[in-house]
Amino acid sequence: MTGTMNITLKVWRQAGPTAPGKFETYTARDVSPESSFLEMLDVVNEKLVLEGKEPIAFDHDCREGICGMCGMMINGVAHGPSKLTTTCQLHMRSFKDGDSITLEPWRANAFPVIRDLVVDRSPLDRIIQAGGFISVPTGAPQDANALPIGKPEADEAMDAAACIGCGACVAACPNASASLFTAAKISHLGLLPQGQPERYRRALSMVTQMDLEGFGGCSLFGECMAACPKGISIDFIKRMNGDYVWGSVSARPEKTVLTSG
């Protein structure tokens, strides 16, 4: 193990959604390069707690890069300098002694700050509610192998399904757009035969909901893809756009059918 290091942290502190926020400076001393980024923050927080001060609030849970709970801007980069890595999987060996690190929450109108580095990402759930599912009630299905799906299609669907919903795409996008998130779910389900009946309806309603939540539009900067810890490709945004256009062209009006019993 190499020597420990001292790091200066400039952290956004904000007491609540409506409270004004500002940067505070802290020093993390004797940080092990083997520790994870959040473990470094744990140590800073432990010290703050013992001083009777309120520790830095940040979201985290699984700490193995899959739950999507953690995420912050680290020196202006969503999830920090390592590619394909969530904040919790970032390790301090990516930094060096004497470094100064600026920490900010995801910033988007749709993601109001709850406290410090914690933001409200419920708009992402509501985008899923708008159609990010296959309407199949429990108990209805046929045998799993009754519907063969080619390996390439299944693999591509899995590429899209790997999204962890962390919101880094929104955070990194200069437009604060949620297109990559939305497109990933539209593509995951739209690539599979099971998802075909609702494919275009899904694209139309999810895009509409994405707009309603106040996210920006897509300029294809590509920043989302670079920030995505799961490497989700902007090719899926292309797919979403295609489904949206075709859905708009081909949409049939939904009828209310009256039945008598």
Binding site: I134, A140, A144, A154, A157, M158, L189, L192, Q194, G195
Partner: peptide, 11 residues
């Protein structure tokens, strides 16, 4: 059930 929901199992 999971296949019908669109879980992309390995194939």
């Amino acid at each position: 059930q999971c296949v019908a929901q669109g879980v992309p199992f390995g194939r």
